[in-house]
């Protein structure tokens, strides 16, 4: 049983040497293992910033608050320590790393997270199986990390990493964006396989309710102006689907 807590989190985006802007204005959220929380909200509300700031992206600086994984403050850890502690971020725009093969990258990551190098044969079997589950052509293992991949291929590979690294907390940042229905199903199945273990807490960041038909959330939070503006059960997603975010955009404008 894992408890992931975000308490009073504030963060700035670093724009230039002198320039910065506060995006997160006090975020509170708790996710237990086995739970899936959808974070929904209009563009520019700070959803992606929340994901990146927690993971330790160099473009963001946390100015206040805590992020606790089973009581340990992950903000005091380096980026790689956070991942080894059990935090995983599936990125909206996965990074291309030219010349580093996907298989080499995945093996390095699995070795680091599990604390020991997997046996070569066992690992290639595991990799093959995981790739098959996401309908990824095995030829991708030899290609550079995300290099020249389409949007959908990149997203599948993010979920591939989720399945291989078995984190305690997975933050999925708009994993559904840019996917056609077939790809969305494949990716959702991958997420559901990871969830089925009951050992991962999922923060599912999305702009649309579409993915929630495949990955049913336990809780839905509306994110607006750098904060959680409203929380509810899965039914809140249906309200958002019919009403849109207008109410939350306006509420911010009048503040």
């Amino acid at each position: 049983m894992t408890k992931f807590e975000i308490r009073g989190l504030r963060a700035d985006v670093l724009i230039g040497a002198e320039e910065r802007q506060e995006i997160l204005k006090g975020v509170d959220l708790t996710i237990n293992s086995g739970e899936t929380h959808a974070i929904m909200g209009p563009n520019g509300s700070g959803k992606s910033t929340l994901a990146y700031a927690i993971a330790g992206h160099p473009k963001y600086e946390i100015t206040d608050g805590e992020v606790l994984l089973d009581g340990e403050n992950v903000l005091e850890m380096s980026v790689d320590e956070r991942a080894r502690a059990g935090l995983f971020l599936a990125m909206q725009y996965p990074v291309e790393v030219p010349g580093v093969s996907m298989s080499n990258f995945l093996r390095s990551a699995v070795t680091a997270v599990r604390g020991e190098a997997p046996k070569l044969r066992a690992f290639s079997k595991e990799l093959q199986q995981a790739m098959g589950g996401l309908s990824i052509d095995p030829a991708f293992a030899a290609r550079g990390v995300n290099e020249g991949f389409s949007g959908g291929e990149k997203k599948r590979h993010e979920i591939l990493q989720l399945e291989l690294l078995k984190p305690k907390v997975a933050i999925l940042d708009e994993t559904d964006s840019g996917l056609d229905v077939d790809a969305l199903k494949v990716v959702s199945e991958g997420i559901n396989r990871a969830r089925a273990t009951g050992e991962v807490g999922v923060m599912l960041i999305t702009h649309y309710t579409r993915i929630l038909q495949y990955v049913r959330p336990d809780r839905v939070h509306v994110f607006a102006h750098g904060q959680v503006a409203e929380s509810g059960g899965p039914e809140l997603a249906d309200v958002l689907e019919s009403e849109g975010y207008e109410r939350f955009v306006k509420a911010g404008a009048s503040q």
């Binding site: 993971a55 790689d80 010349g99 390095s108 990551a109 997270v113 990390v145 690294l165």
Partner: peptide, 19 residues
């Protein structure tokens, strides 16, 4: 990106340079 998958900083550097 590499570190966010648990790969330590110096190993990430080595991988990127070789890449």
């Amino acid at each position: 990106y590499l570190q966010s998958r648990g790969i330590p900083a110096d190993e990430a550097r080595r991988l990127v340079i070789r890449g």
